[in-house]
Nucleic acid binder design. Structure first.
Lengths: 176, 176
DNA sequence: ACCCATTACTTGGCCGACCAAGGTAATGTT
DNA sequence: AACATTACCTTGGTCGGCCAAGTAATGGGT
């Protein structure tokens, strides 16, 4: 008998570790299974929102930074290269590039050596953004990690790396 | 002189810690500033995608779980309560609920006591999903944390909590 | 009683992300 | 040389998420 509404924790077949669930932070409710996944999802959304706030004023939308940054320090690349780099769905990259192109941040041209391919590069006009974006990301990084010791930070990236490996492997979807 | 294409790291004004950037995992490229923010963003996307894969087969889309889970163990609630609980934009919740309603997972009715408000509850039909969702989240949690020691896990939630607090506070956007 | 701020929700629009399906060009196979 | 496969990209559609703006009901203050 799964959900007997208005009646907490009917004891499922799966996860529900133990009594309290830690909702230590920020008033977050945090009931439900999978405390880590839940926390991760919440943090991720907050992080993206924060990035968005930083970027909006620059005329970029969250997600576009990755593309621009790659172009800025790689120069002209094939779109396929870019796709592998950002690890996004090809169609996502296509659409993002269309918008970036229309905004004048990016130029695209057919690859003479392979008529299926498209070469992408940041426009000169976009170079002014570079600094701003770097600064915005610096600020975001700073806000994200405020109050974390050096040890905490390295620990955090270590754990993130582990988790990333976990999420990459199993059902495939990771490059390689 | 910001972007001199095809020329790595022109030394910005902001973050760019040191030489190598750790791209320890999964072949990820991981150049660019803000290694933590970047890693976090990547992990978050992978995590959401993984959740999506689990959920698709159940006829749910990522994000809807949170709503359903809340309804399942809280019973009928006002929409405003739900919004506070999931910490999402009201319009997001509205749309999600419309879709969930159309899918038959949720029922909505006007609150007799307050004619602006809407009461939301999970349908009986949806109760079958409960177990599946719990299981899916269990699996996700398991995959996410595979190979992490108990100490690593608690450390991870601790760090996530800190980061969450950081991202909540500053520019406001957190409940309270 | 009246006005006005607050609360509760909705609509429309835009973007990032995915999948599914399609079209074209390069490459491999026989 | 013809065919099949694979690589590269685009289009269309759907969702989650945000913001901005709008409607409607409640409640407080005077």
């Amino acid at each position: 008998m799964p959900p007997t509404p208005a009646n907490p924790s009917p004891s499922p077949s799966a996860a529900r570790p133990a009594g309290s669930v830690d909702h230590s932070v920020c008033g977050g409710p945090a009931d439900l299974a999978g405390p880590v996944s839940l926390a991760l999802a919440r943090v991720a959304r907050l992080h993206r929102t924060a990035a968005g706030r930083q970027l909006r004023s620059l005329g970029l939308y969250p997600g576009q930074e990755f593309v621009m940054m790659h172009l800025w320090d790689r120069g002209p690349v094939r779109q396929s290269e870019l796709i592998k780099a950002v690890e996004l769905d090809p169609s996502t990259v296509t659409k993002t590039l269309q918008r970036l192109e229309q905004a004048g941040h990016v130029r695209r041209s057919p690859d003479p050596g392979d008529r299926r391919a498209v070469l992408v590069e940041a426009t000169e006009q976009s170079s002014g953004l570079w600094e701003d974006v770097a600064e915005a990301w610096g600020a975001l990084e700073k806000q994200t990690l405020a109050g974390l010791s050096e040890r905490d930070r390295t620990e955090f990236v270590r754990l993130l790396s582990l988790v990333e490996r976990n999420l990459c492997t199993e059902p495939e979807g990771c490059p390689e």
